[in-house]
Structure formats: C-alpha cells, structure tokens
C-alpha cells in the first residue's frame, strides 16, 4: 500500500485530500501544517510520497518547494514528492525536476477535483515517475515564436505536451488512441526536429523537453 505524508496549512483542504486518498486505497500516515513538521514526519515515517502545499507558514511563499528540496537532499529519490500550488511557475517545475532522479510532481491544487487523475498522478510519482501540470506545459507550448515548434505537426505537438506532463509512452498512446509504436515514432520525430538528444528515461525526457521549451540549454543529468 502506498504510504504518504500530507502537508498543508489549511486543515479543511488537508482533511479533504486525505479522505479522498484513503477512499482510493492509499494510506495517509501523517498530516502536518508546516515545513518543519513535514521534515520531522518524513524522517519518522519514511513514506513513499509527500504531498506538499507550496505555500505554508511562516512566510507563505515557497516553503513547500524548499522543504521538497530538503527532502530530496536528505533522502534522495526514495521518497517521492508532489508539490501542490494554486498557481504554477515553469521555473519551479524545472527546479523540482532538476536533480534528475524522478519521483517528483508539480500540480495545480485544483487537480484534486479530478479524483481519478489525481490518484493516478500520486501513484505514478510514488513509483518514480514525473508529473508536470498540463498548464505548465501549455504556458510554454502556448507561445509559438519563442521556440520554433512550427515544424511539428499538430499530432506531434499533442505528443510533446503529454510527454512534458510526464506521461509514459503507453499513457500517451491510450490518451491519443494510437498504437504505442506510433507514439514512439512521433517521439523520435519530435526529438530529431527539436535537435534534442534522446533521453535515457521518462523523467529526463520531461526535463529535457521543459528546458527546451523554456529556451534553455538542456540540463545535464
């Protein structure tokens, strides 16, 4: 069973998410209201995953993001991290992904509304996958001129977006109702058109695509 720690300074939200997850068959081992309590709870329980609100006391800015980075520094990729926020910043996404180890996610808090998707994301992160909110990707893909995506077909752009959200080839195939082989062919085309090096795993692929879309040099593993 997937064990997780939940950090959010709003008790209402925390309780609600916890009940949703418990209903979905996950185990919530601790609920905390700030970053320090989160770090203690993680040390104590060694959960599979921590779900963290980005804004917590005392300054209500990005305590959650910093706590996430500390957890990564302390425990490596053994503990997955899902950062929730009312508002997404592509740079925060890249910051989270940047250690190259996988098992991280960055989602709008509203995504809890779509229970199945949310629980699926939680499970994928717990298994070491990466999940990036579609709105991060759409911000980046939305501005065509910056990174030339004009060479990509409409289909390839859809595949690119799903890839940047952290979907596996299988998931992309399911979502777009096409064969896995077709997805792989699209991805090969995308990488060659964007002049990106093929990434060794799904996680690095997310980072490479996001970094590319942000107009940055690929961040090395």
């Amino acid at each position: 069973m997937t064990r997780l720690v939940l950090a959010d300074d709003s008790v209402l939200v925390r309780e609600g998410i916890a009940r949703l997850l418990v209903d979905a068959g996950l185990e919530v081992v601790a609920q905390v209201g700030d970053a320090d309590a989160l770090l203690r709870a993680v040390r104590e329980h060694h959960p599979d995953l921590a779900i963290v609100d980005i804004r917590m006391p005392p300054t209500h800015t990005t305590e959650g993001l910093r706590a996430a980075e500390e957890i990564r520094a302390e425990h490596g990729s053994a503990i997955g991290i899902l950062v929730l926020s009312h508002h997404v910043e592509p740079s925060f996404a890249v910051r989270l992904l940047a250690d190259g180890a996988g098992g991280v996610g960055y989602l709008l808090k509203d995504r809890v509304n779509d229970v199945d998707d949310f629980v699926d994301a939680v499970r994928r992160i717990a298994r070491g996958g990466s999940v990036i909110d579609p709105s991060v990707v759409s911000v980046l893909v939305g501005r065509r001129a910056k990174v030339p995506l004009d060479d990509l077909t409409e289909r390839e752009r859809e595949v690119l977006s799903l890839m940047a959200e952290g979907r596996s080839n299988q998931a992309i195939a399911d979502r777009l109702s096409m064969a896995t082989k077709t997805v792989e062919a699209h991805i090969a085309n995308i990488f060659s058109k964007l002049e990106l090096l093929p990434a060794p795993d799904d996680h690095r692929r997310v980072l490479a695509v996001l970094a590319h879309l942000r107009g940055q040099v690929e961040v090395g593993p």
Binding site: S10, L12, V13, G16, I17, R19, H60, V115
Partner: peptide
C-alpha cells in the same frame, strides 16, 4: 489563504 483554499476544500467535499 481564504477563497482559494476554501474553494479547494469545497471541491473536495463535493467529490467526497
């Protein structure tokens, strides 16, 4: 801290 958190809580209640 107010409206956004409450709306998330409300959505959660509706799902539950």
């Amino acid at each position: 801290d107010g409206a956004q958190q409450r709306l998330v809580a409300l959505s959660l209640e509706l799902r539950l």
